[in-house]
Design a protein around this nucleic acid. Structure first.
Lengths: 347, 347
DNA sequence: CTTTAGCACTCGATTCATGAGAGTGCTAAT
DNA sequence: ATTAGCACTCTCATGAATCGAGTGCTAAAG
């Protein structure tokens, strides 16, 4: 038996351990591996290999004379090198497509069906961060005069989302002046990124002619207010499904988890990080930096508009999660959502 | 000793039992009552009265030779007849006033600080239902043409909230026609209630002159879309605080609770009911109709605009909650929020 | 040299008995 | 009507005994 055969058998056994543990949340014995992996060897042989795997730090024993469970390192190795991508089943894609029909150009109407997909299909917590307006493009601005020095600013982004904010102006403005501002911005900024817009405005401030200066200052203020109006947000659901997972039988473990997911800032930060780069990311246990997620793993994918990540979505499950399935679902949903957002050009 | 003295002593003992149980979540013994209620009688006397209270169904024993805990009926009696209103402390009002400064004319910006107040001050779950637009008044409508047959409708309500929706028109409309529609609606509907508006439109449909008919139909469609755009919603936070209460030591109990609060529909329904009438309502255990809340009590108050309830806010705590405090906090916050909404006339 | 049958050993989980302690209910005395 | 006193009940914590799943090691077999 040459070396690759030998290695592949070891992988097979690791795979069995991960998958059996995923099913039952009970330490896996050598006999169970034999049955599951259909290797034509005895449990004693498997035991030998298992102790190698343990020396490598890929699996561990909760106590002598118990079966083995994967270590964090073991999960990592499994995800990187052993796990096989499992394509979604027909039912799953049908279900996703059905719920995705409910998406429409209103943030809440995107968030809710999406989370529903994630939680129902995985039975873990589903989460999605709101699209970051700075990463998306300017489409159109309307200024509705409300009273002497109060204006309702309505902003439409390239992906078709609307954001509005009441603005107190420093000076009273004529309706015609308001119109001049919005015309100016609409002509200058179309399709610019908000990141770029802030630069653009700064640059422009220097070269602007005097008569226009006041208006321009107001315009800048309005845009700034709009861009920073809604602070970043993240929504998460499916707690009750998650808490039914056997690891949360332990009360303390459950409480730790609940505290962790209520810290929306930390969660959001993690999703921001998950939105960098293009691919699905998997954080296993401690890798997610927040100690409350020690027993969990997180699968995150960015979603994009015109190739630019503007947010992230994913699932938070027990470390013992069905990575293959989670990755497939998250990936597919993110892809589909990105497609939807790209069609946002409704003009 | 005459009968009222006798009754008052019984009440005092019930009160002690409720309050001691509130503190420690441990069945209350006769000795503890003696100490707490400062009655100049022996524990044996208290024991006699306690067995009367038990016969009345106000308290119960988890098992022979344990102390007593209040029954649902006991809590009810306590809330109705024994509990003394406790005014908020200086710190509490200061805290509330400080957070209420963050309120502004954007629903999310009202919801979040409010929930924060409720959860921090009570250590239970805080919840608030979104304002129901049907119960509030029409202030202003803007129609922004987006493309040939697509319009962004922006609606401002009397309490200063904004709602917008994209509308696909059945026919292409000129900008001037759009203007005519919005002018018409703005002049006719000002300050009408949305409930009334739907009637008004129905009535008007019959007497409208032909030339205007098409526009009018479009207008009706737009308003309908706006009114029903956002489905009712409710937000709840503070789960991790709640789950730290000793009754949720029991895993099953915690899971039941978590399942219950994830059923947003049921929760919302309850809050709708809680928004009827003007006063704070207390639902104890089973009274809240949803079995998942069997171990919980709910304190709800409507919040109003111009005397009309448009939503509800409250806390969900263990049955063994500090009713006096919860009622005070919920009442004060609801009152303050109503005041804020009444100032919504920003024109 | 690899594989395996066999067996002793380990350790968690379960069961049962025991005792302590908290609290009651009842009775008889005040 | 109240209370001291006491027997009784039930939970909870502790510890011993047992069971069984699973391992690691050894020696034999392929």
């Amino acid at each position: 038996m040459d070396i690759t055969d030998y290695k592949s058998r070891r992988n097979k056994i690791l795979q069995s351990i991960v998958e059996l543990y995923l099913e039952d949340a009970v330490p896996v014995s050598s006999r169970a591996v034999v049955r599951h992996a259909r290797l034509n060897v005895s449990s004693a042989t498997v035991r030998n290999i298992m102790s190698e795997l343990e020396e490598l730090g890929l699996i561990q024993q909760p106590h002598t004379s118990a079966g083995r469970i994967p270590s964090d390192k073991g999960y990592r190795y499994y995800v990187n090198s052993v796990m096989q991508r499992r394509p979604l089943t027909r039912e799953e894609t049908v279900y996703i497509d059905k719920l995705a029909k409910n998406w429409c150009r209103q943030i809440e109407r995107v968030v809710e069906p999406t989370i529903q997909i994630l939680t129902s299909l995985t039975n873990y917590c589903g989460a999605i961060s709101f699209p970051r307006i700075e990463k998306t493009g300017f489409k159109r601005l309307e200024l509705v005069p409300i009273s002497r020095n109060r204006v309702l600013a309505v902003l439409i982004t390239t992906s078709g989302f609307v954001r509005n904010v009441f603005i107190e102006l420093d000076h009273e403005l004529e309706d015609s002046e308001l119109l001049r501002i919005s015309n100016f911005l609409n002509s200058e900024l179309t399709s610019l990124n908000f990141d770029d817009i802030e630069n653009f405005l700064l640059r422009k401030t220097l070269e602007i002619q005097d008569s226009f200066y006041f208006l321009f200052k107001e315009a800048t203020q309005i845009l700034e207010d709009l861009i920073h109006a809604t602070h970043e947000r993240i929504v998460l659901e499916g707690i009750s499904k998650m808490i039914r997972q056997p690891e949360f039988q332990d009360v303390e473990c459950g409480r730790r988890f609940l505290s962790a997911i209520e810290q929306k800032n930390t969660l959001l930060e993690m999703f921001m990080k998950g939105a960098e780069g293009g691919a699905v990311k998997v954080y296993i246990g401690d890798e997610s930096a927040h100690s409350g997620f020690y027993d969990c793993s997180i699968v995150i994918s960015p979603y994009q508009v015109l190739g630019k990540a503007i947010g992230a979505l994913g699932v938070i499950g027990p470390k013992r999660m069905d990575y293959a399935k989670a990755v497939s679902v998250v990936e597919y949903v993110a892809h589909k959502l990105s497609g939807f957002l790209d069609e946002g050009d409704i003009f």
